[in-house]
Amino acid sequence: MSDCERIGVLLDDYLSGTLRAGDRTEVERHLEACPTCAREAETLRRLLADARALPRSIAPPRDLWRGIDARLEEERPARSGRRFIRVRPRLLAAAAVVLVAVTAAVAVQLARPPAQAPLAGGPAVTAPRYAAVAADYAAAVRELEASFVQRYDRLPPETRAVVSRNLAVIDTAIAEARAALAAAGPNPDLETLLWASYRAKLDLLGRATKL
């Protein structure tokens, strides 16, 4: 092993401050003498400084509380306390808007997530997560639909037609994937496709609302 290779191996511990004193002296001497390794060490030092400076908190891109809240209903804490049943008027109003017939059907299905057995050998977390994510998407979709309905009349007729046509295609896809999931049980590939359709719907509604 050449000197530089050996230093390269020690550099990690050196920069982490976990190198033995003897090795540390060796590294320091080499860095003074070898510009290549010194540059390497400098790049690494900057990388580590940047990494430590990364923000410790990043706001989730959407509000995840509703999905969590929906799961707390089924998954009580060990020490059982009061039950809080909260009516969300905004969502109820939104749900009353039947934008596309299929959407309503999907919403009804979502209110009753299909019973699921955990995937054999897989993590049991799949089923509750599936229900929670589905509930979360459904809630987000309903909210956006409500704002979309308010904008609908102001859109040019051609745009309305484009949006409605695409929404209908997405709703059919969502209904198909959901039906398949209900029949087949947990299935990561199907879930991935279902979330993709939901995202497509959220995205389309979001864009249509901003037009």
């Binding site: 054999a120 896809a173 198909e176 029949a183 087949a184 049980g185 991935t192 496709l193």
Partner: peptide, 27 residues
């Protein structure tokens, strides 16, 4: 066929691998 009516899969290595080609469809 995947177990439990979970659809069907085709997985193989072409050549010596080294890249990922992933396709997923419903129908």
């Amino acid at each position: 066929p995947l177990p439990d009516q979970r659809g069907r899969a085709l997985e193989f290595t072409a050549g010596t691998g080294g890249a990922d080609l992933i396709v997923r469809t419903f129908k």
